[in-house]
């Protein structure tokens, strides 16, 4: 294979450059398709129409605009922490893309602890958020950051515990291994179509979606950035490109978490009947299609529901989601051993 004969450094360089292009593209795509167009159409309006055909280039134009904005740091801010915070959020997003496979050979690194690694790095971003809120020396920012930390504490657990059901079924934490595990078996005895884990892990899938909604601070869980209460939460004091980094982190992570959900529950890059080189070519298309489906669910909920109260948020996680996730683990374990 071509990929195998290349020296490590060259291969890694190509992968890095590709992912450097993929992350902003994904963030722009989700931002345009869902945040701008889907929300507009759900609210009976057109949304941006002028930049490019149907407003496609609106976010690019926004990016160029942000590039020309003055870079302000509040006088009282902790300068170094203030500057490092968006960086930490972006590092967390970048590391998520290391393990997501887009084809049999199209993966940056198929770590043995793949999904565990992804869950671990996804929670680094909250440290960046806390740093941003603290360093801004702004009351809105501080409150937003503390809310974000409280939210992570509550929803990290359902996210992690929901995934365990899949790990039990697949018998591996490697994301490639999980995709491979979904290729065998038949749907209720029908043909050799593979068996996406959503059929057996419906509960896990919805737990994962709800928890990622909270991790991404999308609307029913958007208290950390609640505009009507906290201006822009921990982002209040950020301007220009530093603000854009938070945006890119949010939507890049939304794409990554949707792709991970698609990999865990919908079979990832695999569609029945496509193997070998064809799977490498079609894989990214299939994965992005499935990712958009999952992201659609996340943003649909975002545009539909009003914000939770902070006490409802904690009660929902601890009294419903976590017991449900634990029950899901035990039921999956029993079924795995029994069959």
């Amino acid at each position: 294979m071509l990929a195998v004969s290349m020296p490590y450094w060259f291969e890694t360089l190509i992968k890095t450059v590709v992912v450097l292009g993929v992350i902003p593209t994904m963030a722009l795509m989700l931002g345009y398709v869902f945040l701008m167009k889907m929300m507009s159409h759900m609210q009976s309006r057109l949304g941006p129409m002028d930049a490019g055909p149907h407003g496609v280039l609106q976010l690019v134009a926004d990016g160029v605009k942000f590039l020309q904005k003055e870079d302000l740091t509040p006088a009282n801010a902790d300068k170094w922490v203030f500057a490092a915070a968006p960086l930490l959020v972006l590092i967390s997003t970048f590391l998520l893309y290391v393990v997501v496979p887009a084809g049999p050979r199209l993966v940056v690194q198929d770590l043995d602890v793949g999904i565990f690694f992804a869950l671990a790095v996804s929670s680094i971003s909250v440290i960046g958020v806390l740093m941003a809120g603290w360093a801004s020396a702004n009351k809105y920012s501080l409150l937003g950051a503390l809310r974000a930390a409280g939210q992570l504490i509550a929803y990290e657990l359902p996210l992690v515990l929901a995934v365990i059901g899949v790990v039990i079924q697949a018998g591996t934490m490697s994301l490639q291994g999980i995709v491979r595990a979904q290729q065998h078996g038949a749907i209720f005895g029908f043909g050799n179509l593979g068996e996406p884990f959503i059929l057996t892990q419906v509960v896990g899938f919805f737990l994962f979606l709800i928890a990622s909604q909270a991790e991404l601070t999308q609307t029913p869980f958007d208290m950390p950035v609640a505009e009507s209460e906290l201006v822009a939460g921990y982002m209040t004091e950020y301007s220009g490109f530093r603000f854009l980094f938070f945006f890119m982190g949010e939507f890049g992570t939304a794409a990554a978490l949707s792709a991970i959900a698609a990999t865990l529950y919908l079979g990832g890059w695999y569609i029945p009947g496509v193997h070998g080189l064809a799977a490498d070519v079609l894989g990214p298309v299939v994965l992005i299609t499935k990712m958009m489906l999952v992201a659609f669910l996340i943003f649909w909920v975002r545009f539909t529901y009003p914000r939770f109260r902070e006490d409802q948020l904690q009660a929902f996680a601890w009294k419903y989601l976590i017991p449900l996730a634990l029950a899901n683990i035990m039921v999956t374990g029993i079924l795995k051993v029994a069959f």
Partner: peptide, 9 residues
């Protein structure tokens, strides 16, 4: 590779 990606960010 993971470290390289962090550096790329």
């Amino acid at each position: 590779t993971v470290a390289i990606f962090a550096a790329a960010a």
